[in-house]
Amino acid sequence: MKRFHIALAVRDLAASIADYTTRLGQHPNAVVEGKYAMWRTELLNFSINQNPDRAGQLRHIGFEDDSAEGFTSTSDVNGIEWEHFSTAAQDERIVAMYGVPVSA
Rank of each mutant, 00 (worst) to 15 (best):
A68T: 07
R3Y: 10
N49F: 06
Y20I: 00
A88D: 08
E69D: 05
D53L: 09
N78T: 08
H5K: 11
A88W: 06
Y98T: 02
S47M: 09
R40H: 15
E92F: 09
T74G: 03
A68L: 05
V95Y: 02
R3M: 11
N51L: 06
I48P: 01
A18P: 04
A68M: 14
R93H: 09
S16V: 01
F4D: 06
G25N: 10
E64G: 00
H84R: 15
Q26K: 15
D12T: 02
F46C: 00
F71R: 12
S47C: 12
R11W: 04
E64N: 09
E64W: 14
M97D: 11
E92L: 11
F46T: 02
L13R: 05
A88H: 04
A96G: 03
E81R: 14
R11E: 15
V31R: 13
S86N: 07
L8D: 04
F46S: 01
A88R: 12
I94W: 01
F4C: 00
R93N: 06
G79K: 14
H5D: 01
G99I: 09
I6T: 08
N29W: 06
E69R: 10
D65Q: 12
R23D: 02
R3T: 10
T21E: 12
G79Q: 06
M97Q: 14
E33Y: 12
L13D: 04
P101N: 09
K35V: 02
V77P: 03
A55S: 13
V100R: 10
V32C: 05
R59T: 08
L8I: 03
G25D: 06
R54P: 04
E33V: 12
A89V: 08
V32E: 05
